[in-house]
């Protein structure tokens, strides 16, 4: 599954990381190096093995339906690059 510059461009867009055109090819090579190394996982027999998503062997805890948070607009907006009238402000979004 070799990665080419076009794949890097697509993945960089998915990850929203602006990547100059002249970086695509070197990045592709770098990623291929890493992925080739990762390919050794194919040596492992994982027949019938359940994927392990967590180290914690307990079910999810549930909390009560009680309002314990919110009403902290100042904190929520305290680090905003731009805000106004209680809103975050971002460049115009066009659907």
């Amino acid at each position: 599954m070799a990665i080419d510059a076009a794949t890097v461009r697509k993945v960089a867009h998915l990850a929203r990381i602006k990547t100059p055109e002249d970086r695509l090819e070197p990045l592709a090579q770098e990623l291929n190096g890493i992925l080739n190394w990762i390919e050794q996982l194919n040596e492992v027999d994982v027949q019938g093995v359940e994927p392990m998503t967590s180290n914690v062997a307990q079910p999810l805890r549930l909390r009560e339906d009680v309002v314990t948070d919110g009403a902290k607009v100042d904190a929520v907006l305290s680090n905003a690059p731009k805000s106004a009238d209680g809103f975050f402000v971002v460049p115009k979004v066009v659907d």
Binding site: A12, H13, A15, R16, I17, K18, T19, V76, N79, A80, P81, K82, F88, V90, P91, K92, V93, V94
Partner: peptide, 23 residues
């Protein structure tokens, strides 16, 4: 770059703002 953290100053679109801020 929407609610906190670095936001790029120059961008051509919303997508570009995301990509530029993160780059």
């Amino acid at each position: 770059g929407m609610r906190f953290g670095h936001r790029a100053e120059e961008f051509s679109s919303l997508d570009d703002l995301y990509a530029a801020s993160r780059a």
